[in-house]
Write a protein that binds this DNA or RNA. Sequence first.
DNA 1: CCTGTAAGTAACTCGTCAGTTACTTCCTGA
DNA 2: TCAGGAAGTAACTGACGAGTTACTTACAGG
Lengths: 236, 236
Amino acid sequence: MDLSANLPISKYVTAATDTKTAASAQAKAAERATRDPERTRASILSAATQEFAAKGLEGARTDDIARRSGANKRMIYHYFGSKDGLFQAVLEDTYARIRGSEADLQLTSRDPVVAMGQLVAFSFDWFLRHPEFVKLLNEENLHSAAHVRSSNVARSLNMPLVELISELLERGAASGQFRTGVDPVQLYISIAGISYFYFSNRHTLSAIFNRDLEAPGALRQRRQHVVDLILGYLRP
Amino acid sequence: MDLSANLPISKYVTAATDTKTAASAQAKAAERATRDPERTRASILSAATQEFAAKGLEGARTDDIARRSGANKRMIYHYFGSKDGLFQAVLEDTYARIRGSEADLQLTSRDPVVAMGQLVAFSFDWFLRHPEFVKLLNEENLHSAAHVRSSNVARSLNMPLVELISELLERGAASGQFRTGVDPVQLYISIAGISYFYFSNRHTLSAIFNRDLEAPGALRQRRQHVVDLILGYLRP
DNA sequence: CCTGTAAGTAACTCGTCAGTTACTTCCTGA
DNA sequence: TCAGGAAGTAACTGACGAGTTACTTACAGG
């Protein structure tokens, strides 16, 4: 009697099926990853980041996220509980990636003026290269930061940039290169704001001024302006 | 036979029903306004502005808007065609109201430095007093300015503030009070950005810094900072 | 004064979408 | 070696919400 007639045929059969068990299992895992919670979770998160950034919290569709990630919709609920839970996870993951990329900021000079200029330009470039972050943050603020508020991960990110700004302000003031009495938090908000606003509102600004804010020339000009603005203000 | 049993009872009967026709019609119009296209349109627009500002384009519900306005949902489609059409009308109406309120900006001095300080403070106060504008603009940018783009009304609003900034920059540079070579559009974007960002992102900023950005003291401090920042930069 | 059109109403339709169910397949550790 | 739980699938459900229909009521011009 041929029992194989009663056995469901695996959807994951590969060319390696006939080889030795251990080797084939390993090969399969490496190549197709039949069961890989880490990978599934990560691919859902990645798909969700794109969908939420593109269409917002209510605009994004769980079916689309599932399809895009290659996983099943059930898995979203398995790993993240709800659509809101998924959105929160996306925010946390994105915040965590910022933290990582802050290592990218290597101030090449001890001089406070040069270093501050690099910091301002870095922050401009950062928003330029991470449009999805700008969108997600906008979306979150439209929802009164409900997800960030209930997230320990996101709240714990206390912006090391503020520390850095604070230190530069002190050194610059001591050396007579910067004015005194500048609140680092206010300055941080201004540095972020002049770049963030340019990107977050680029569509309406483009429509009003009838120029393409994303053209290379426009970007170069804006980058120069934000650096000049902050350094000009900081002169004693 | 009593025919009144077959006649639908008017929902608009008032205490004045028994008085003379002409007089009662006038009284009714004044008091209850049975048929008033202008008023209906306006009340839908007003309700929609609040709902869209509070919940965003997809978050807002046409049923809620209808209920809130006192009109019927059918009337939304009668006057505005679609939910998107209504959103566009809300944007146009809001832009139009800005234009009107720009008359509020009465620069009390001919001195470019003083006048520029007033302009920056005015722009801060304006965002502070019109949170619904900040929300609607955010929402619109999240949708790539699709509604503004297809609206002649909104596009025509070419920001007279830029003209004003331009004029102040010229006078200030001529008198030696301002630096030269400042692009008025860049400066306009920066002036708007440092205030707008503070309000649009106040929820996440509050969560991160654990302070209430809307407390009177915080607002006063921020207002002072944005003025100092711009005037500090503009020094020659 | 009466008729055509605009203003207004309530109840519906019909697609969509978050979340669930009922099931199968795989893997681990006792 | 097998039991039980975790990973995964597909089809379903039930609510909700944008837009429509079929109707009634008001009013202005001939």
